[in-house]
């Protein structure tokens, strides 16, 4: 347990100090949200209607694009070898890393959403609904991205290839995340229905992402 805590704390510290990636995700998110009206036009009614979708797309890209160095950095400085040979189960170790990453990049996205919702002309209730769905949905993105981060080590490639591999898998999360946000705004569907499915997807991704990432590291480092 203490080894896990050590990995978790180390990743948190690495993320927030100089050279760590925390904060850049939120900045990227903000820029995507700012770019959207330039592409669509400053029609406030239209922006309010597609606001949840823009916020979700921005958060999706922000949380996936920040992930490709998550394990590759460990492979370079040798700490991955220690994690692999250590007694801590690899699945738990990568899960601790993903959790630390989510706390430093996924959670800030959800926290910043009510503020960015103002730019999209969303009212308070809608903004908080989007923030709530992001809070429930971004862990799924992080843990699916964890598989991408592990494959990046196996393949010694990063960037666009991983995004291309992982993005199709995020379709269900996007569908139910945006649907739950829209349900909160328009009330056409009860909010709980898509939202509980979104939570279920997150739980499933926790399991699938963790085990697939660990398997990929085990098979890749032989």
């Amino acid at each position: 347990m203490s080894a896990l805590t050590a990995i978790f704390m180390r990743d948190l510290r690495l993320a927030v100090r100089v050279g760590g990636g925390a904060g850049i995700g939120v900045l990227f998110f903000l820029i995507v949200v700012v770019l959207a009206p330039f592409a669509i036009g400053p029609d406030l009614a239209l922006l309010a209607r597609i606001g949840p979708a823009i916020l979700w797309l921005g958060a999706l890209l922000a949380s996936l694009l920040t992930l490709d160095r998550l394990i590759a950095a460990d492979a370079e400085d040798g700490s991955l070898d220690l994690i692999l040979t250590g007694r801590t189960p690899l699945e738990l170790a990568v899960a601790a890393k993903a959790l630390a990453h989510w706390l430093t990049t996924g959670l800030p996205l959800a926290i910043a959403t009510p503020l960015f919702g103002l730019l999209m002309n969303l009212d308070m209730q809608a903004s908080f609904a989007v923030a709530l769905t992001l809070l429930a949905g971004t862990p799924a993105l992080t843990f699916l991205g964890l598989l991408g981060a592990a494959l990046a080590v196996t393949l010694r490639r990063g960037g666009l290839l991983l995004t291309v591999l992982i993005l199709p898998l995020t379709v269900p999360v996007l569908i139910f995340g945006v649907a739950a946000s829209n349900a909160a705004v328009t009330g056409s569907v009860p909010f709980a229905m898509p939202f509980t499915i979104l939570c279920a997807l997150t739980l499933a991704s926790l399991v699938i992402g963790t085990f697939a990432a660990a398997a990929s590291l085990r098979h890749g480092m032989e």
Partner: peptide, 23 residues
């Protein structure tokens, strides 16, 4: 090996994607 893992994860995800898209 990387493709094998990705294929298996894809196989698990395809029914979920199908269900989501239908919904």
């Amino acid at each position: 090996r990387a493709a094998a893992i990705l294929t298996l994860v894809g196989a698990i995800n395809l029914p979920i994607i199908k269900f989501s898209v239908d919904w």
